[in-house]
Amino acid sequence: MTTRMTINGVSTCMAGEKYEKFQIKIGRKVRTMYQYDYRDTLSGDLFSCVKSTLGECRQLRDEWLKCKNKEDRL
């Protein structure tokens, strides 16, 4: 699989979100997955995940942002 989201294993996501749809084959079954990267515009922290839907990726990102904001307040 070729990817345009990484160069030598390093994310190319600058600010905001970037995602890529790909397919994997498990036995005879083909599954569609999403690689999702989000770089926080203020701190530059990177969130990355692979899930079966883009909605799941964004939900995890939102949870990460909530936890991150709580830590920043402490």
Rank of each mutant, 00 (worst) to 15 (best):
I26S: 11
Y38L: 02
L65W: 03
K18Q: 09
M14H: 05
S11F: 02
D40N: 13
L74M: 14
E71G: 00
Q35Y: 10
D37Y: 10
Q23N: 15
Q35H: 14
W64G: 06
R58C: 08
Y34V: 13
E20R: 02
N8H: 08
Y36K: 02
V30Q: 14
L60I: 01
M14G: 00
Y34W: 12
D37V: 01
Q23D: 13
A15H: 03
E17S: 04
G44I: 05
L54C: 03
C49E: 07
G55D: 12
T32N: 10
T3Q: 04
I26D: 13
S48W: 02
G16Q: 10
G55M: 08
Y38N: 01
Q23A: 12
L42D: 13
L54Q: 07
K51F: 00
L42M: 11
I7S: 05
G16C: 06
M14K: 09
T53D: 06
M1Y: 06
N69S: 11
S11N: 05
S52H: 05
W64S: 04
M5L: 15
G9L: 02
T41K: 12
G55C: 01
Y34T: 04
Q59G: 01
C49V: 09
S43T: 15
E63A: 11
K21T: 09
S11C: 07
A15F: 03
I24C: 10
D40E: 13
L74S: 13
M1F: 07
R39V: 12
K29C: 09
R28W: 11
S48K: 09
